[in-house]
Amino acid sequence: MTPNWPVADLDPVRRLAVLAEAIPGAVFAEDVLDAPFDQVWAVAGDLENALPALLTDVRSMRFVEHDGERLVAEARSHLGLRDRFDVVLRPGWCLMQSGRLIGGMAAVADGDRTRFGFLGGLRLPGTRLAGPALRRLGRPIGRRFLRRLGERVAEVTG
């Protein structure tokens, strides 16, 4: 008989928090939203509609390539800047990266509610040195994203 050793698991929100700790200057915010996982992810995972609504800098986002959970998306800012993102998207998990930016979302059911994590970071020279300052400056972005997501989920689900 083989012993049945206990195994520890790490849910997607905790995994995203690990990445945020490892990415210099990355911002991480977490909250529990008052809606079931399916409803929350139906809103958050619809990147083409969600990100322009939830992030002030994004005017549009459009998928240009699609291969399973790997996608390529083109984003435009309100100033007209374009960015091309490699994206991994599956239920409860999204990580996206361009030459300049990193973004991530993770969600896990918490009873009838949803624990949700947000990650934002820069990929620019000097972020390692400026990490602590960037984290302080970026904190409101994460909180704002989560507040808007909660409002949008409430709107959609009525």
Binding site: L10, L19, V88, I102
Partner: peptide
């Protein structure tokens, strides 16, 4: 610092680390 590679490595290492830490 490739975040997508970090994510993939995290997916690879998490079950192993969880088997040790559990």
């Amino acid at each position: 610092g490739d975040a997508l590679a970090m994510q993939e490595l995290l997916t690879l290492l998490t079950p192993y680390v969880g088997r040790l830490c559990g």
